[in-house]
Amino acid sequence: MLVSPTYFMKKTLIVLTVAALAGSVASAAEVSGKVKLTGTPPPEKPITLDPPCAKLQPNPISTRHYVVSPDKGLANVFVWVKEGAKPTPAPAGKGPALDQKGCQYQPYVMGVQSGQHFDVKNSDTLLHNVHTLPKVAGNKEKNIGQPIPMSSDFVFDKQEVLVQFKCEVHPWMFAYVGVVDHPYFAVTDKDGSFKISGLPAGDYTIEAVHLKAGKVTQKVTVGADDKKTVDFTLEAKAPPQ
């Protein structure tokens, strides 16, 4: 049976595309690690809730600047590939939601891709306003009211680490969203651990950003299926004299 050159080329192209996709799927390098805090951070400030919020939030709350585990793991650190990763189109699906629950934003720090839509929810039975305060040109400031339990769609077009969200109705409510133009980012959990998955093989600069303790970078090279550990140390410096 004779095969036409066009048919052959099409088949070859399909095979190559599948191979490339398979390769990228197979390229499942992973960088994980832990962010630790040295030094003694200043004590958090207790927050006095107004009566309507106190009904929703029976537990005493405080600011969340330094959330440190017993073994010095630092939570709420945004860890991302600062250099080496190519910008990728935003995924079609929505990113993680930022929730307002018990008059607190949950989570305190999260990440989305630039161009990726995500919801800001109001799970409370009272009014919150959602006020974004981006600094990078191209990311629009927005201030809307959410008078009832509901969700509103948000998106940022430009990379920005980190965008602040505020509720001025309840001024103690604020949170941060890291906006990155690729999917290689993570936020440390309560133990200070993080994991960035699906990295293509290559050389990267990874940055750990904490709003108070500052930022620190490390370079790492990963092969197609490498699982590398990269730990960071941030310092709570002594107070100014």
């Binding site: 200043p42 004590p43 958090e44 400030k45 927050i47 600011t63 600047h65 305060l133 602040q164 505020k166 001024p171 103690w172 409510m173 604020f174 108070k212 303790a213 500052g214 709570a236 410096k237 107070p239 100014p240």
Partner: peptide, 17 residues
């Protein structure tokens, strides 16, 4: 460097810049 240190110890209760 000094301003960074001041900010590290300013624990804003209302998310001030």
């Amino acid at each position: 460097a000094s301003v960074e240190l001041y900010n590290a110890h300013r624990l804003e209760a209302a998310g001030e810049a």
